[in-house]
């Protein structure tokens, strides 16, 4: 088991070390993930998760939205 684990770790370590274009690509991926994380925390909070504490309240809110938004002119 240990040799397999060691070989796997070495495989990834050597692979990452030998990257050429990959270094730039990983840098872009990491920067992008950081930006997305920050955006998600600042702008993209889940509306129902942040405004309601239980599933019962969330379903109640959605049902209210469904029943309140029906057009009275219909």
């Amino acid at each position: 088991m240990m040799p397999l684990l060691k070989n796997t770790v070495l495989f990834y370590r050597d692979g990452f070390r030998s990257m050429v274009v990959g270094r730039t690509l990983w840098t872009i991926i990491l920067i992008k993930l950081v930006i997305l994380y920050v955006l998600s925390q600042v702008f993209f909070q889940d509306y129902l998760q942040t405004h309601f504490s239980t599933d019962a309240e969330r379903s109640e809110h959605v049902i209210s939205n469904l029943t309140d938004q029906a057009s009275p002119n219909n």
Binding site: L25, W26, I28, I29, K32, L33, L36, L39, S40, F43, F44, Q45, D46, Y47, L48, Q49, V62, N65, L66
Partner: peptide, 22 residues
Amino acid sequence: AIGVATGIILEFQFGTNWSNYS
């Protein structure tokens, strides 16, 4: 590499902009 995680943004939007749908 450039495309990866761009799909996650769609999932952010489900929760934020389309919460009833979500």
